[in-house]
Amino acid sequence: MATGVRKSWLFRNVNAKIAALPMVLTTLVVFVGGTIWTVVYSFTNSKLLPRADFVGLAQYERLWANSRWMQSIENLAVYGAFALVFTIVIGFLLAVLMDQKIRYEDTFRTIMLYPFALSFIVTGLVWQWILNPEFGIQSIVRSIGFESFTFDPLYNPDIVMFGLLIAGMWQGTGFIMCIMLAGLRGIDEDIWKATKVDGIPTWKTYIIVIIPMMRAVFITVLVLVTSGIIKLYDLVVAQTSGGPGLASQVPAMYVYDYLFTAQNLGQGLAASTMMLLSVLIVLIPWAYLEFGGKKNG
């Protein structure tokens, strides 16, 4: 009897299950398998080629004693904090402006979204030239007549992360705006009519009514932006390659350099395991809110 029940469960929707099988296998082997492999080999002293010679936590001890890694984390924290706040605030404000039933909305939306169609490498190179003191903004302003004007964020270790931030936001904000705009359009017109009737000012309506209603959109945006921050890599490579000095190093660059250039697989995998951990710290609360919340509601 019991086997009969299980069979019918197993063979229900059999076509759909067969169709999903390749994806399930890919997920298990490539994503889950690859992740487990990474974590396991981060406890070995593998050099260029993987070797199952376990050394315990030695790679992690070395990692956390390394000043370049510490600096990378610090840089990422600075970049992340500013990117998170500014992308979401500016993205939302732009979406609100778009939502005012303006003329040529399509055109503006397209312009705002165009940077997102570029790869980070292109964005990085473009902004490398714009921010270059010899060719970019600085030289233009100087040629107008302000001889002492200085704006060279990419060559000043103290503010180089802000040079990256400018480029990162130029690229990412338009996309966040579009998601926010979709969220705003999802709000029922009747809500607006009701607040108008009650005489609540528009700005107040946004803050106390609309934003709480867009909770799911904000959480999605939060996860998208945060995971984008943690894997920040190509923008830095194209714009500064981690310089000047180590001033714009990020964890992903450390991982790449130790995996490949330094031929120290164990060290690189230990660093990437730490990155995985930080992604999980972001993802688990999100998954809890998204899926756990539905059950209760």
Partner: peptide, 30 residues
């Protein structure tokens, strides 16, 4: 020296050359 050591030396030297405040003593210790 192995590529691992060479990479770490590169990291140290670029930090030392590009920062104006890392002392010679600190760099030598590393």
């Amino acid at each position: 020296w192995s590529p691992d050591v060479q990479t770490q030396l590169g990291d140290l030297q670029v930090e030392f050359w590009k920062s104006q405040d890392m002392t010679a003593e600190a760099a030598q210790a590393k």
